[in-house]
Structure formats: C-alpha cells, structure tokens
C-alpha cells in the first residue's frame, strides 16, 4: 500500500542552524498521526517541506506516492494544509475565499461541498461576511474549510487548536475524527498533548530537528508508564533513599516521583516520616502523553 506521506532522509538548515537532520518517517493511509515537539523542534519546517512551501536541502518527500518536487502539481492535489498562522485575504468574503480556493484546485462552483463543510464547521451565518470582520476562531474555521475544498486524501493541520476556546477545540476534534473515519489521513501538530492522546493512533516526536520518538500512542504510554507522585513537604530536603524514585523537580519546586506501583507510595511516606518531614500537598496520577513527551525531550 502507498504511504500517505513518505519522508526520506530530510535535511534542512538555515545558516548554521540545523532545522531538520536526517528525518525519515512514513504515515500510513487512513492514519491519525501526531507530530509533537517543543517550539523550534522543526515541526512547521517539516510540514512546509511536505507542502512545498519550503525546499529541503536533501532527501525526498511524497504525498500519496507523488513526489513533492518533481510531481508538485499532483502532490499538491492530494494534500490539504491548515497553516498555523491566521492568514486571510482581506479583499474577500468567506464564500468568495472558498470559491476561489476551489477554483485553485480546478473545481468550479463547488457550492454543495462548500455548504456541507461550512455547516459542519458552524460557519453558515458568516458566509457573506468579509474575512477581516471575523473573530480569530472563525478565521481558524475558514482555514480548515479552505484546506478541505478539494477533498484531499491527506490533511495536515499545523496547530489547529492554538488560541482556540474550549468549545471550538472540542468541535474541531469531532470534525477531524469524522474526517478520519471517512478515510482521510490526518496529521496534526499540537502543543496540547491531551489532544494527541485522545485523537492520534501514532505519535512522532521531534527534538532539535531530529526524530526522537516514533511509535503508537499506546506503546509510548506503556514504555513510559507508571504512576506520578507529586509532593511538597515542609522541609523539602530529599532523603537519599528516595533518589531512585525522583523523576524531576517541577518548575515550582515540587518533587515528581515515578512509581511502578501504588504500594511504593508507602515507601516514600515512610522515608519522609523517618527524617521527620511532613507532607503539605500530594497528587497521585497515571502517566500521560505529557510525561512521555518530557521524558523524551529530556533524554540525551
């Protein structure tokens, strides 16, 4: 089966800065894939290369088997991209933007599909309003609608829920899930790891331009599984016996312990009692993708 996205040995540098170093990965057809990484890790650069907005120094990329540079017209037809920035053309209304977008992809009229997509995104009341007058959330929806005008088999969303209110975020999740269930391959970058955990079957993590992890969400959670115990005590002097459990010291100074079993809570508390320390606050929770993310990012 053809991969929806095929990324082979991509390198890209800006001056002396290596934005991407030898990145290779495939996204299968019909997959819901998350591309994660801290700011500056190279997510947007990778997406830009896939979309042909940016030219790689070396390596190759293909969308549904069509090479992004040698077969650029075909590759672009297969791909819908929702850019991260809230860009729009201030000369046009929502309807005009979507009609023009359809035309760019060789589709005349397209009124039925425009109707369907915009009502799915809650844009039906804004169709004849100028893009300038829309709120940020509405502009974001128009960007999503634009990317779908040519019913692309592969859709890339670059932080679609950044700066979006909770209601719209949930709405977009539902919409993306729906698209995925209809057979569209979806690639998502996001800072909300909860989003990736809920939606995506597989996760790739970029760190300093390199692919630091690539696995199913389930496997990653399993690999970094365990229980997190977040503690604050009166003295905050760590007994040496607890060193092996300590995962990190959080930004606000709290200890984060990694436990394999709930019974180890007692071990920690016993040790604290032994040094006559007292617990002020305590949170106990299962590891989530955010923990995985930080573990990967901190690994050397």
């Amino acid at each position: 089966m053809t991969a929806a996205l095929e990324i082979k040995n991509i390198n890209k540098h800006y001056g002396s800065f290596n934005a991407l170093s030898d990145v290779s990965l495939n996204v299968r057809e019909g997959e819901f894939f998350a591309l994660l990484g801290p700011n500056g890790a190279g997510k947007t650069t990778l997406i830009s290369i896939l979309a042909g907005l940016c030219v790689a120094d070396s390596g190759s990329t293909a969308v549904m088997g069509k090479d992004v540079s040698s077969d650029y017209l075909e590759a672009r037809k297969k791909l819908g991209v929702v850019p991260q920035e809230l860009v729009y053309d201030p000369f046009f209304t929502v309807r005009e933007m979507l009609t023009i977008q359809s035309g760019y992809f060789g589709i005349r009229g397209n009124t039925d599909w425009i109707e369907e997509v915009t009502s799915g995104l809650g844009l039906q009341d804004k169709m004849d309003e100028n893009m300038r007058t829309l709120s940020g959330g509405m502009k974001r929806r128009v960007l999503v609608a634009q990317a779908l005008m040519h019913k692309p088999p592969v859709i890339i969303l670059d932080e679609p829920t950044a700066g979006v209110d909770v209601e719209l975020r949930r709405g977009l999740w539902k919409f993306m899930k729906n698209l995925n269930s209809q057979g569209h391959t979806i690639v998502l970058t996001t800072h909300y790891l909860e989003e990736a955990e809920v939606l995506c079957e597989r996760v790739g993590m970029l760190k300093n331009g390199r692919l630091a992890a690539l696995d199913t969400t389930q496997n990653l959670l399993k690999r970094f599984s365990g229980i997190r115990l977040v503690l604050r005590t009166k003295k905050m002097v760590l007994p040496s016996a607890l060193n092996e459990y300590l995962l990190e010291v959080a930004a606000d100074g709290e200890w984060v312990f990694r436990l394999s079993d709930y019974s180890e809570v007692e071990v920690i508390l016993r040790e604290l009692r032994r040094v006559e320390d007292e617990v002020i606050s305590m949170v106990l929770r299962e590891a989530d993708l955010e923990d995985v993310f930080f573990s990967v990012i901190k690994e050397d």
Binding site: A51, G52, L53, Y72, L73, E74, R76, K77, L79, V81, P83, E85, V87, Y88, D89, P90, Q101, Y104, F105, G106, Q146
Partner: peptide, 17 residues
C-alpha cells in the same frame, strides 16, 4: 500584500503551474 499578510500561502499550496 499577499506576502506581508501571509495569504500567499494559499497560492503556493495550489496545484497551479
């Protein structure tokens, strides 16, 4: 204008030779 406002991206993504 398209460059400064960023909407040139729509054209750059389109399959127009």
């Amino acid at each position: 204008q398209s460059k400064v406002t960023g909407n040139i991206v729509f054209l750059l993504l389109a399959p127009i030779s």
